[in-house]
Amino acid sequence: MNRKIGDQTFELVSKPTIIGTGCFVGEKEAYGPMGKYFDGYSSDDTLGQDSFEKAERKFFERAINIALRKTRLKPTDIDYMIGGDILNQLVSTNYTARDFQIPLIGVYGACSTMSESLALASGLMSGGVGKTVLCLTGSHFSAAERQYRNPLEFGNQRQTYSQWTATGAGCVILGSGDGPKITKIAFGKVTDYGVSDIANMGAAMAPAAYQVLKAFFIDTKTIPRDYDIIATGDLGKLGSDILRDLLMKDGYYLGQNYMDCGHSLFNSEQKTFQGGSGAGCSAIVFSSYLFEKLKNKEINKMLLVATGALMSTTLNQQGETIPCVAHVVEIMNLKEKVNG
């Protein structure tokens, strides 16, 4: 049986292995500091489609194909996939699943979808539901802009504390065998500290990351220094600074081992202000840079804490504040047991 430790954390008994990943990104992401780790990119952000929503789906498709090729699997080998995106009704995920004919569990966790999918998939697999499971998340700058903000060509100024939705999709395949394993998972509580400015996502989401990280540290009796890397999803520079401050108040010090996927996705010349955001952000950084480090054993113990702002533009206009959530996934390179 999987064991619940403390308030929010679960320790997995049969620990699923990350057997392969794939990601496909846009041009801006490819020219950022993480560029050399990505599997592929396109300078045409429509990928030959006539709308950005259809293009996002193409990004998903390419990420899956790369991951399948790397793991030498066929779509029929996958038991089911868990994934989501930030467009209404999870259109990209649903249509991708239609084209691949893989059973689908669609989840909405806004930008936290990657760690939500990984946590759900590993929990289910540990309970015997599925042997090979695919997790999928992505986002597209232009598609997100038209749903959440203004038309692309509309001339307005971006706030200095705003972030830039990442274009790209990441795909992670879980199975069994050697490799980095998912050992513990913790689902976060929906946290709302009253931020209502939809441009300031970092400030809205930082308390959610704080809530679940603090609970995880208490449950597992660990401190941030016990991990080689603690990676949040898309808090951006401002949000990361806030998270450091919040955890510091409780005596948890986030040092050099802390990184934010969004903040490290772009460099300062790319004018994204606080860095990247969007569901694709943690997905592409985890499936490329972080997975590579795990595979090469440069890091052996890490936490992925993707954060999501569960906002609706309708309710925001009705005066509601932004509820946020974050989920923790602990990934480890376990030492191989010598059989007796």
Partner: peptide
């Protein structure tokens, strides 16, 4: 009370556009 304090803190922490430059 917590939210009020937090929003005040965020306000302080958020980088501001220089209005003279704007």
């Amino acid at each position: 009370k917590r939210n009020q304090n937090y929003l005040k803190y965020v306000e302080q922490k958020s980088p501001k556009a220089s209005w003279f430059k704007s």
